[in-house]
Design a protein around this nucleic acid. Structure first.
Lengths: 215, 215
DNA sequence: AATTTATTTTAGACTTGGCTAAAAATATAT
DNA sequence: ATATATTTTTAGCCAAGTCTAAAATAAATT
């Protein structure tokens, strides 16, 4: 499988996890910052290889084979992210681009040994689940901070947006995975939140609250 | 720089280290298992980028820029090999192909952090030197076992051939980096050697002796 | 239901890196 | 010095993956 094929599969996998319905050519093109015509070409190829179910003009979905392949790529991506953060001391906002390259390294033995070396983690540095060698995923109950009510208390277990900008903002506010967060007040006017993180009290916008997973 | 360009640079670098003279198109083609015509095309491109000095029909050599680039690829390759052997517990005959992929990962920060994580090693698992971040290499005095005489004693510090077959043979004979080797007898007829490795006495062919570095 | 708008596909072109076959240059041998 | 052999380059073709522009289909609107 080529780099390009792997990137398409991964994109379709991620889009599927939010929408469920068949994925449109345009949605893929937008996510991958490429042109719809390029996507069409690739969908034909992936369909040939039985990695996707593709019907002209009707969108696309992953076959079982395609889904497993996509999960293996996600597995590699997230394990490498763990390695970068835990062993090489990268911060969580620096690892995405490097893992984007490392996820294409081909060696099952490598990834399984890496998994063991890291102590078989079930989540990456952003709180996203890591599929095991068979593609199984342990789902953690979690909800967005924005859905919480006044006086509720929870632990930060993940981020929805993993952009460097957002992660750096969280660092600045000293919000990390494992941080205890208490809703002090929910402002009805703009849906912003007054929260306590550890000992500090801060105000965060609804956009921030909509990208933090809490348990 | 593309994968292909990096592979050509690396090949020219390795060929240079044995011959000194300009490298022929054919020599590159043979080493890379490709055709001379493909090599010519690539040499033109590398020359455009000032990575090689190339004169039609006259062979090729690396520019300073090209040599540094090649050393950085070798650095990455050898550091990843160290990682695979020391941290992930691969054996020395398994790491080459994986490092061949990892050497193309682009991130200076990654490789320097990996270097630190490994304790800034100066040699890879085959005894080959690892260039530092500036391309500097610590050369170790060493000679081939085949050049040794009767009754000489030395320590195995490297292998010339790094093929899996050869490395597995060495494993079988319990010869590893650091092994003490004593020449018991040199057979003049076929230039084979009777040697002592640790407590064991074995006979090795001249071909084997010509691929073991001793200090 | 017809027409406009948006999406998707096709057709044809380009780039990278490879190939084969033939031509050109260089090296070797008579 | 010339003929032969080897090496290297050129010329033209192919596949992957991308693009633009035009055509086809689906969706939305009147």
């Amino acid at each position: 499988m080529t780099f390009s094929e792997e990137n398409y599969l991964k994109t379709i996998y991620h889009l599927t996890s939010v929408s469920d319905a068949d994925i449109s050519t345009n949605a893929i093109a937008e996510k991958m910052e490429t042109k719809a015509s390029s996507v069409t070409d690739m969908l034909k190829k992936l369909s040939e290889k039985d990695l996707v179910n593709y019907v002209k003009y009707q969108g696309v979905s992953l076959t079982d084979k395609g889904k497993l392949a996509a999960k293996m790529i996600v597995r590699k991506h997230r394990l490498w992210e763990c390695f970068l953060v835990e062993k090489l001391d990268f911060s969580w906002d620096e690892v995405h681009d490097i893992a984007e390259q490392l996820e294409h390294i081909k060696s099952e033995k490598l990834i399984n040994k890496l998994d063991d070396f890291l102590g078989n983690p079930t989540e990456d540095p952003h709180g996203d689940p890591i599929p095991d060698a068979n593609g199984r995923i342990i789902k953690v109950e979690k909800q967005l901070l924005s859905e919480f009510e006044k006086n509720q208390i929870g632990i930060c277990v993940g981020v929805k947006d993993t952009s460097s900008d957002f992660l750096k903002y969280l660092d600045k506010q000293e919000i990390a995975l494992g941080s205890q967060i208490e809703i002090i007040e929910k402002e009805s006017f703009d849906s912003s939140f007054r929260i306590r993180v550890g000992t500090k009290e801060i105000t965060i916008s609804n956009k921030i609250a909509s990208n933090l997973y809490i348990k």
